[in-house]
Design a protein around this nucleic acid. Sequence first.
DNA 1: ATTTTATGTCACCTGATTGTAATATTTCTG
DNA 2: CAGAAATATTACAATCAGGTGACATAAAAT
Lengths: 226, 226
Amino acid sequence: MQEHILVVDDDNDVLELLEYTLRSAGYDVLGFLNTKHVREVLAQERIDLILMDRSLPDIEGSLYVEMLRSKNINIPVIFLSGKDSQEEIKSAFLKGADDYMTKPFDVEELLLRVKAVLRRSNSQTKEVVQNLEYKDIALDLNLQKVRIQDQDVSLTKLEAALLKLLIQNRGRVLDREYLLKKVWKNSQNIHQKTVNVAIKRLKEKIDPSNNKEYIKTIRGVGYMMA
Amino acid sequence: MQEHILVVDDDNDVLELLEYTLRSAGYDVLGFLNTKHVREVLAQERIDLILMDRSLPDIEGSLYVEMLRSKNINIPVIFLSGKDSQEEIKSAFLKGADDYMTKPFDVEELLLRVKAVLRRSNSQTKEVVQNLEYKDIALDLNLQKVRIQDQDVSLTKLEAALLKLLIQNRGRVLDREYLLKKVWKNSQNIHQKTVNVAIKRLKEKIDPSNNKEYIKTIRGVGYMMA
DNA sequence: ATTTTATGTCACCTGATTGTAATATTTCTG
DNA sequence: CAGAAATATTACAATCAGGTGACATAAAAT
């Protein structure tokens, strides 16, 4: 999957250079001239690395990173700075930097350092898939199977995605349009009837004798799990 | 737990300075004047970080690291070097460096960079280059061999890396994206289908008669052991 | 430099999955 | 209860995911 890099630099020329360079190297780049909206973005997007100028209009970059670290946001940070004194560099590391480059920097070296930092930090992100439960159904999203009353049933990708959504939204009716958007994602021109069939197939898997009523049909609307 | 740092520098004065500095900072330090016994040490001890001079008597430091990386030894490395040209620095990163400091260096900055690298890599490289077992498979990572029911089978680099990852994550499904990142590392533009072929070849090696089911395919997701 | 080995890619095959359309059944309304 | 609308069921074709063997290139060994 593409890696996402957030860049903050108040010099528009430098920012554009960084954006261009990183995009050319295949990264997804979000560039900002100040830190105003950075918190929101971090809350909403998956960011793998932050490149940050130190001298920003609103706040000193390393102070901002120190604040992030204090909020337990441990995304790797590489500082870019015109200041190259030992003291400046050391204080940046103390505030949570992963690397520090002084301007003017060689873009190739920057790319290599970016890569090096990502290599170390990424593998740390072993996503732990949480499993969901509903009544006597235990959905294992890792193995894509359900355990129902000590019976293991394996699901297909589609079935697993459907069941996950239903369990996550238990008590809420999910209409076909919503299901198509969430489960079938970008696929174009999928008929709403397709949902009916998919639900039917899922029902058959998790309740072959058809006496459990895990999934309820809400006529005229969609489906739900009680 | 105390962290173990291996230092290689052919200048005895520098080596002693590094040993003293790092020990004072609470690390366990193993110092060497050349790379002769490094491989053995790596095989026996848990090493968390390597500090390496580039100009060594027996081999250029970055070439040595490149060799280690090619053997799937991914312990973080910080280079120390008198050479400060862009080309030198870039080539070091290309060969697998995590950071690069030019001599003469500020010891405090060195300590901070050491700390930064260790912070990122810690959870990852906790294990010694150890041998792993799974059922009746014993994987020897140093010799790149498996012993299966008293049969020695030699593996390729790729096969060993794959099998290592699978065994380490037994019970967990590893998807193709994850495998590409961990096993194929930085290589760009590798097709996900390539994983299928690699797994197939590994299966063939460790289970020629194809009746053991060591590696299970989870359709739509990836592969797992157990 | 030559030979061998390792590895990525491709084409093809198989079986599983899934969308669709045709048909049956249920549910709702009057 | 009849008729219409919604949903369930079934069958079938298209697609897809993964396995397999062949081949070309890259890497390693000699």
